[in-house]
Amino acid sequence: MTATAPAFTGRRRQRRVAEAHLGWWMIAPVLIVLAANSIFPLVYAVFVSFHNFQLLIPVPHRFVGFANYARIFRDALFWSSLEVTLWFIAGVVFLQFPAGFGLALLLHRLRRRQDLLVTLFLVPTIIAPSVAAFQWAQLYNYQFGPLNYILGLFHLGRPTWTADPQLALPALVFVDFWEWTPFMTLLLFAGLRSLPQNIVDAARVDGSTACQVAWRIYLPLLRPVIGIALVLRILMSVKLFDIIYVLTAGGPGTVTENLAYFTYIEGFRYFNLGYACALAILQLIAVSLLAKLLIRMTRRPGVAHVIPAGGAA
């Protein structure tokens, strides 16, 4: 960054070399741990995915080429679990984002107590997902749950929620909404807070209404932050596992089985390790492409511009 010096003196060059050496020493332990715990397993997963690898059947593992991958696309359960994953992504984009943005705008209007409120809102996000799932198991309880009691007061029926094939998926999408909308709010609120105030004031003077300000000024200026928030949440929703495991175990039938849960069942219930690994690798490829997109967005010059380091406190 500061390579404007006309020529490297001998001592300077020496220092640079020493720094490079130290740099590698400082990062070497991380590389070793990551290699052992993620590079090696990934390579091994690729290897397994090319074999007929079943723990329950004591036959030697046979190389099967792309057979496991070919099987994926013929498997109706794969397509249905992909659909469930897409529903959760739709929940992020069409429910969590608008609600999160709305809440962020409202919080931004407040003049006091913003931090306290943000932290209160964040409680669903920071508690353990299995704790959150337990809370919803109570609320959704058919017989004794407060939700059905309140519906009963208004004679609105008694749904079985997570046991109802029609309602189970929406019920889970709502739990995910409840858990993660506050996180969306936090990111967008922090983004709003870092915007230069004079732009907004100028728009107000022009006589724009609050809605116009939100739509014409905040939305375009926040585009990089919105991009980051959406991609982060989409990546997280692809690996969603916990609330499905606790609340429905993929049921009733398989209507709430997403890709992550389907892979888990194939691998750890049926021990079709070859097939499960092929599924896992496919997800990894999809997610890496998404992650690449995310990083490109964080590097966009706009981000540095909109979010000055050490900006408005």
């Binding site: 990546l235 690996k239 896992a280």
Partner: peptide, 20 residues
């Protein structure tokens, strides 16, 4: 490379790690 590990779906490494 280090960052992409953060986004790796846990199922991708679950089976090899279990075996390891």
């Amino acid at each position: 490379m280090i960052l992409s590990i953060l986004f790796m779906p846990p199922v991708a490494v679950a089976i090899p790690m279990y075996l390891l």
